[in-house]
Design a protein around this nucleic acid. Structure first.
Length: 575
DNA sequence: GCTATGGATAGCCTAGCATCCCAATGCTA
């Protein structure tokens, strides 16, 4: 599959052209990079089948870019890109990840100070070489250092949403081996933590050699750290590490429990075992030297007087106590979700039409999909104004009447993701909001306000009688932007009082509310909604990441409003 | 460089904000 590689090349090509001050071309390249990211068919295959003309049928690809793709497929390079890269040979990916660093600054810093990567940048900023440059001053230098610190803090961890699909692919491949009797992923991936350090697989096999041979020769393996018959360790092309362990069948459950963690959870379970004069380790539960459990996790937990605990909550944050008191709730599950209330269409910055989004939602078994396009304050994403909202309404009504004729039990709802302006007002007039099925409000600007100000700003939006949902409450972007400071307790009290729903945004970079805040919201009795925030029909499936965080936040079906069927949901929104 | 319109040429990705430097630039949504 060449799509992702090419997408990256075109993204960088766009950045290089911006450095050169070229107009419009960067936009063309960025656009095509985005298209390639979600293109289902491999461009390599497309080219192989029908050549250049077929490439030109891809949206955003014309003669020039088709030639570029051809060149890349044939030689593994695009000369135009290599030439620009040679001129400014910097680690673009690394530098651009620092908030406040863009093409122009990267160029100047390379030309004046030979800054090529994060390390160079930090060194220069710390020795105050940047502030003395023309066009830079102390404040920029300080911002750069803060940006670097943030990037570093999240370094070495990968987004669950990026890792999980790959993990599943690899798991499926390993499963096809007849030598693999049982397999599971363990560690933080199994606990569905928002970011993941590395990936652990556990396997039961009578022929470990074969399994290991296969594992270390997976196509994306770039480095083999170690290879044995019980453990092998590799690094993948995308930078994350993977371990595979082969364990005896009789210890599979205890090994899975042990390697799933968390460490804190395991310390507790071991102590409990000890208090019962038992020993718990990765090989099993032992009384004296005799193994009394180990084959399955359920048996391991049972042997020490507990019951099986869902991996997502194994953090020693009260799960043990809950089990002992018989009060472990029944957590929400993906199949409980009946619809999605935050999605975008081509009316704003979405990549799929309303109809395509609806069909995709329908095929997921949903009963409804809320289209909530951006509104006018966000010019760049073609945010809708009052007039376009009412035009969009007509399109939605037309599609809904089609569904009705087909007897499909499915409906599109019209929402909008409005913007909370800096004083807490919204960018759409009340009369227009009243006509929508529901209203989402979110902060999309001025992230650096003081804690008290942001809190007041959000609470004012909560008090707006038209607002139903507050989107991505803290505004964080994993690995990129810190959450803005808010007084969560104050906001939770307001949300409860005004019956406003808080969103659990499932987008892998957001996952906002996060697990901790979800749990606090639940404890405060605030209702939540799990939304995908998808900008493409293929991303509706992101909902599973939101559900996972909800589970980590101890959420039950009743806490989440989009577990309700359409009629009940609408009644709730009206109330 | 791509797309749409009309067969070569126009239009596209804008506006607010911070920073730097006191009008302009670069970054971000």
């Amino acid at each position: 599959m060449f799509n992702q590689e090419l997408s990256k090349v075109f993204h960088e090509l766009a950045t290089y052209l911006k450095m050169e001050g070229v107009a419009f071309k960067p936009y063309a390249y960025s656009k095509v990079a985005l298209v390639l990211e979600t293109l289902e068919e491999d461009v390599g295959e497309i080219y192989k089948k029908e050549g250049l003309t077929a490439l030109e049928k891809i949206p955003g690809v014309g003669k020039g870019i088709a030639k570029g793709i051809e060149e890349y497929l044939k030689t593994g390079k695009i000369k135009h890109y290599e030439k620009l890269k040679k001129k400014i040979p910097v680690n673009l990916e690394e530098l651009i990840a620092v908030e406040g660093m863009g093409p122009k600054k990267i160029k100047v810093l390379y030309q004046k100070l030979k800054i090529r990567n994060l390390k160079d940048l930090e060194k220069a900023a710390k020795s105050h070489k940047i502030a003395s440059l023309f066009g830079f001053e102390e404040k920029t230098e300080k911002n750069i250092l803060e940006g670097i610190a943030f990037v570093k803090r999240s370094k070495g961890r990968f987004l669950l949403g990026n890792i999980l699909p790959k993990v599943r692919e690899i798991e499926a491949e390993l499963k096809t081996l007849k030598e693999v009797k049982q397999i599971s992923v363990a560690g933080s991936v199994r606990r569905m933590r928002e970011t993941v350090g590395d990936v652990d697989f556990l396997v039961v096999s009578k022929n470990p050699q074969k399994v290991m041979d296969f594992f270390v020769s997976l196509p994306d393996v770039v480095k083999i750290w170690s290879k044995g018959t019980t453990r092998s360790s590799v690094r993948m092309k995308d930078g994350f590490g993977m371990d595979l362990r082969v364990v005896p069948e009789k210890s599979y459950g205890s090994a899975l429990q042990y390697f799933t963690g968390s460490k804190e959870h395991n310390i507790r379970t071991r102590r409990i075992a000890m208090s019962k004069r038992l020993k718990l380790n990765e090989y099993g539960v032992f009384r004296n030297k005799k193994q009394i459990a180990g084959k399955t996790e359920a048996k391991v937990y049972k042997a020490i007087g507990l019951c099986w605990i869902p991996p997502e909550i194994r953090e020693n944050k009260g799960e043990i106590e809950a089990v002992l008191e018989g009060k472990l709730p029944k957590f929400i599950d993906c199949k409980d979700i009946r619809g999605d209330l935050h999605s975008h269409s081509t009316w704003s910055d979405g990549k799929s039409s309303i109809s395509e989004m609806a069909e995709a939602a329908k095929s997921m078994g949903y009963g409804y999909l809320g289209i909530s396009d951006h509104t006018k304050f966000l010019k760049m994403v073609h945010g809708l104004n009052e007039r376009r909202l009412s035009l969009q309404r007509k399109e939605i009504e037309k599609l809904n009447s089609k569904f009705k004729k087909q007897n499909a039990r499915f409906r599109i709802l019209q929402g909008a993701e409005t913007n909370i302006l800096d004083k807490g007002t919204l960018d759409i007039k009340d009369q227009a909001l009243e006509k929508l099925d529901y209203v989402i409000a979110g902060v999309h600007s001025k992230f650096k306000m003081k804690k008290r100000e942001v809190t007041e700003r959000i609470i004012r939006a909560i008090k707006n009688p038209n607002v139903d949902i507050i989107a991505h409450l803290t505004g964080r972007l994993l690995k990129h932007r810190e959450a803005y400071q808010i007084d969560l307790d104050k906001i939770l009290r307001a949300a409860k009082e005004y019956n406003v729903i808080l969103e659990i945004n499932s987008f892998p970079e957001r996952l906002d509310l996060n697990d901790k805040n979800i749990r606090r919201a639940k404890e405060a009795g605030v209702k939540m909604v799990i939304n995908s925030d998808s900008h493409h029909k293929d991303y509706l499936g992101y909902i599973e990441f939101g559900v996972a965080q909800a589970r980590r936040g101890w959420v039950e079906k009743k806490d989440i409003i989009n577990t309700r069927p359409l009629a009940k949901l609408l009644t709730f929104l009206k109330s």
